[in-house]
Write a protein that binds this DNA or RNA. Sequence first.
DNA 1: AAGATATGCAGGTATTTTACTGCATATCTT
DNA 2: AAGATATGCAGTAAAATACCTGCATATCTT
Lengths: 106, 106
Amino acid sequence: MDDGKVFKALADSSRRSLLDRLCDENGQTLGQLCEAMDMTRQSVTQHLALLEGANLISTTRRGREKLHFINPVPLHDVYERWIRKFETARLSLLHDLKEQLERKDE
Amino acid sequence: MDDGKVFKALADSSRRSLLDRLCDENGQTLGQLCEAMDMTRQSVTQHLALLEGANLISTTRRGREKLHFINPVPLHDVYERWIRKFETARLSLLHDLKEQLERKDE
DNA sequence: AAGATATGCAGGTATTTTACTGCATATCTT
DNA sequence: AAGATATGCAGTAAAATACCTGCATATCTT
């Protein structure tokens, strides 16, 4: 839904790193994710909360542990709404540049 | 090159709005872009500088005016490196969930 | 050349973000 | 039940961000 949340979530390298690790192995616990992150568990938790807020991951509890799963849907949505739009812009770039050059001659 | 810059640039709604307007009409001047933005020219300039830093727009001067053009390439690159990765994750989601359920039974 | 127009640049401030420490709670193991 | 393990929550300090105001410079018009 909210493109801003998705882009904001992806704007941080720590969070992209977390997604990377979940790509490698989905369903990891908080502890597992912390091991690879070189920051406090609490900080990792905050990052994960942001990713969850953007709906990029979903979580579930298994006993005392929390498992984290990637959700690719919002990223795909963002692709539909933004990247494709730019692709069409790409197609019309030559036209725009031509128009621009013509203006220069005025 | 730098995914972070691209995502950071897209993380702000004002900047996304600027890209939107350039999608509608490429090659607009700073003044034109400011008219639609409900903030000071200086702020718009900063946002545009960030977009340019992410290589999402390129600029050229025409006399005293500065023209702004969309550059779709970095967005496409980000798509290749990130969105597609998640698409493959999507495909393996069922497998991961199955594995997860099996762990529950242990 | 003088005034108008378009943009550049240098701070300054309030908000947001990131990362931390410290303590609390819940679950597992023995 | 007691200790170990996994996570939750609150408050804080430092850094980054997003606005702003004020002034400078460059270009066009007449």
